[in-house]
């Protein structure tokens, strides 16, 4: 007795649905996985993103040499914070520090503050330690720590560059206003993280 084609198709469909699904998502293992997870770490956290972008914004606003000094100082000091995280050295209030970094840097941009370069570098350096500590704590669990480090340092640098690129609008009067408004938005976002609204 021959079964109807519809029933045969139905059976096949049920069998397919009942099958164990093989690797549905990319597991993020190995070198590529390490780089991807490291690259996504600073980008996937809004608190990190706004702080990094405002470092670039502020650097551009301050002009030379801050425009390049701040993005150069930040990764190195962040790495130092990362070492503390990897070593398990407790740093109280990491999340508060990260939220404060967005608030303070945002205010600096919004107010178009131009302190001496060393004050700007120290301020950015202090906040970099908090960001680095957060990254460092995650580092030992990464699939490939070197690729993870590479990914997150590159992502951090690119966020700075995007901030600098936006900050270069300050040569136009309307651009200056746009940057200062963005600074205000950044500090509000930081406030949102500090008060757990975000």
């Amino acid at each position: 007795m021959e079964k109807s084609p519809v029933k045969q198709v139905q059976k096949i469909v049920w069998m397919v649905l009942a099958m164990v699904v093989l690797a549905e998502a990319h597991s993020g293992q190995g070198l590529a996985g390490g780089f991807t997870s490291g690259f996504l770490h600073p980008i996937s956290g809004l608190d990190h993103v706004v702080a990094m972008v405002s470092v670039g914004l502020w650097g551009a606003f301050l002009g030379a040499p801050a425009i390049w000094l701040l993005p150069v100082v930040f990764p190195l000091v962040m790495a130092f914070g990362g070492v503390l995280g990897v070593a398990g050295v407790p740093l109280p209030g990491v999340e508060i520090g990260i939220a404060l970094s967005a608030i303070v840097l945002g205010i600096m941009v919004a107010a178009a503050a131009k302190p001496p370069i060393w004050i700007a570098a120290v301020l950015v350096g202090i906040f970099a330690i908090f960001h680095g500590h957060a990254h460092g704590t995650e580092l030992p669990n990464a699939a490939n720590p070197l690729a993870y480090s590479l990914g997150f340092v590159v992502a951090t640098g690119l966020l700075h560059l995007s901030g600098i690129a936006f900050g270069l609008l300050d040569r136009f009067p309307s651009g200056k206003i746009a940057i200062r408004v963005l600074g205000g938005v950044v500090s509000l976002i930081g406030l949102g993280f500090l008060t757990h609204v975000l």
Binding site: W68, P75, L146, L150, G157
Partner: peptide
């Protein structure tokens, strides 16, 4: 180029700390 140097030093420092502590 100097920013790249900073990135390279940062990456090396982090991974060395992993070798040392983990």
């Amino acid at each position: 180029l100097r920013i790249m140097g900073s990135w390279i030093a940062a990456i090396a420092l982090l991974v060395l700390s992993l070798l040392l502590f983990v």
